[in-house]
Design a protein around this nucleic acid. Structure first.
Length: 352
DNA sequence: AACACGGGGGC
DNA sequence: GCCCCAGTGTT
């Protein structure tokens, strides 16, 4: 792209953004900590999903010190349902580092930002441009899609090494005068116009600079290889009550999938089998309940069936467990599939 | 470089 | 159903 085209691209993009850019809660603040929170929540998560979480989060954890001092469980509870919970743990760890090392003030230095836990190339670029006005690219899937079309870049955006190409082109394009608006304009363009399917090219402010549009091949971009298929795991979810009517729940380990979350005990079953789980076979009373739920993670599928048993079955040792009343579930972070179980239980109670 | 890591929404 | 999404940490 020639210099005059670069200037035109910037001009058209920023003019469009001024007219059509979204009014988002985290665009109404200059507080780098709030912008940081929003950027972490927005990783792999869409704007409309994030909004209510963001509002609650900055209300309850209004300062870096407040988040640093909070129990991890309360942070996970706040993040409950948003997914990718390591983001929440990493954010809190990063914030604790900022409180320790930088007196609670986010550094405006790329190297220092990248040293913080939970801040990678994207978030560092977003913070440097949006919070600190520095001309740094912030390359995400959105920006890669836009640039793959504008420049007809054939690199597979699913591959890590492809990002370098996109950094280079954005680095040449980025508006030195207003990098914050530039990066956010690209994000809005990607979300509103340059969508994955059926991009709205006739309304695109930079269609005249877009190679794919000129060649009418915009739907061929971006090039992205398919991820491998998710594996399926079958579980029995165990409902067991004590004499006070409380339910047994357990805490997942502090690493791996849904680390630190609470759940009803889960026993893995044979896949594609109607056989009762082996752990249940010697019990006097086992009732299969009218609750079956398929939960899809990106890399894994849970096939869940709910059972009520009359006594605690043999469960693995070394796991934290508690008897908890239905009214007290809200104190604990649960993964969504187990929130569905809680909903089911509450409906059951209402109808009986 | 590949993999692990959640959940919701669009069509 | 399948694909998408404002990525980072670990190995």
């Amino acid at each position: 792209m020639h210099q005059n085209e670069i200037i035109a691209f910037n001009h058209e993009l920023l003019a469009w953004f001024q007219q059509n850019g979204r009014d988002l809660p985290w665009r109404r603040t200059k507080n780098p900590y709030y912008i940081w929170v929003s950027e972490v929540m927005l990783q792999q998560t869409q704007v409309d999903t994030v909004k209510p979480y963001y509002d609650r989060f900055i209300t309850d954890f209004a300062t870096p010190e407040a988040l640093a001092d909070a129990p991890e469980q309360s942070v996970l509870k706040m993040w409950e349902g948003l997914g990718y919970y390591s983001r929440a743990r990493n954010l809190q760890q990063g914030v604790r580092e900022v409180v320790e090392k930088y007196d609670g003030k986010l550094p405006d230095d790329k190297k220092k930002l990248l040293e913080l836990h939970g801040i990678g190339p994207y978030t560092a670029g977003a913070l440097l441009s949006i919070a600190f006005g520095q001309p740094e690219p912030a390359i995400d899937g959105n920006v890669m899609r836009v640039m793959s079309r504008v420049f007809m870049i054939d690199a597979d955006i699913a591959k890590a090494k492809s990002k370098k190409q996109f950094e280079e082109v954005v680095g040449k394009l980025i508006a030195e005068a207003n990098p914050s608006a530039f990066n956010q304009a690209l994000m809005d363009l990607g979300a509103m116009i340059c969508r994955p399917k059926r991009p709205d090219c006739p309304n695109c402010p930079v269609r005249r600079q877009c190679k794919a549009y000129s060649a009418r091949v915009q739907e061929k971009y971006p090039v992205k290889s398919r991820p491998k298929k998710a594996t399926v795991r079958c579980y029995a979810i165990v409902l067991v009550q004590d004499q006070l009517g409380r339910y047994l729940i357990e805490q997942r380990t502090d690493s791996g999938l849904l680390a630190g979350f609470w759940q009803f005990p889960m026993v893995e079953c044979e896949t594609n089998s109607d056989l009762l789980p082996a752990a249940f076979r010697k019990l006097a009373s086992v009732e299969r309940l009218d609750f079956h739920y398929i939960h899809r993670f990106s890399h894994l599928v849970w096939d869940l069936t709910l059972y009520r048993v009359d006594q605690a079955i043999d469960l693995p040792a070394g796991v934290a467990r508690k008897w908890v009343a239905v009214d007290e579930f809200e104190r604990y972070p649960f993964p969504v599939p187990h929130l569905k179980v809680i909903d089911w239980l509450k409906n059951l109670r209402m109808n009986t």
